[in-house]
Amino acid sequence: MLDVSISMQGSVALVEVSGRIDSMNANQLGEALSNEIENGHMHMVLDLGGVDYMSSAGLREIVSALKKVRGPGDLRLAQPSSRVREVLEMAGLDTIFQIFGTQAEALGSF
């Protein structure tokens, strides 16, 4: 249900996700982000272009990752759908995360 793929784009870890992020699989995203952080990749872009649904379980994982990297690095979001953007906005995370309309813009922001 959830596909997570990771690649290095220069010094930035690009995490591309597709599917639905809910309580059954949010830990899969959390583990992928934690692994990157443990490997010293503190500059990350999370591309949500392929995600058509995210519940609070998904928010928990991305906020947890942001708390770990912000300062020495950052976790920036790319192309959230309108439905994902809605939950980000309800939780006030649209002002906490840097959010970009395209993957290229997010990668280029570092």
């Binding site: 519940s55 609070s56 906020v63 947890s64 708390k67 912000r70 939950v87 309800m90 939780a91 006030g92």
Partner: peptide, 20 residues
């Protein structure tokens, strides 16, 4: 309710489900 205006440092990671 959790506060959407809270800064990152003060936030707990969860607790948004009922608020949504």
């Amino acid at each position: 309710d959790p506060d959407p205006g809270e800064p990152l440092e003060a936030r707990k990671t969860g607790g948004w489900g009922i608020y949504f």
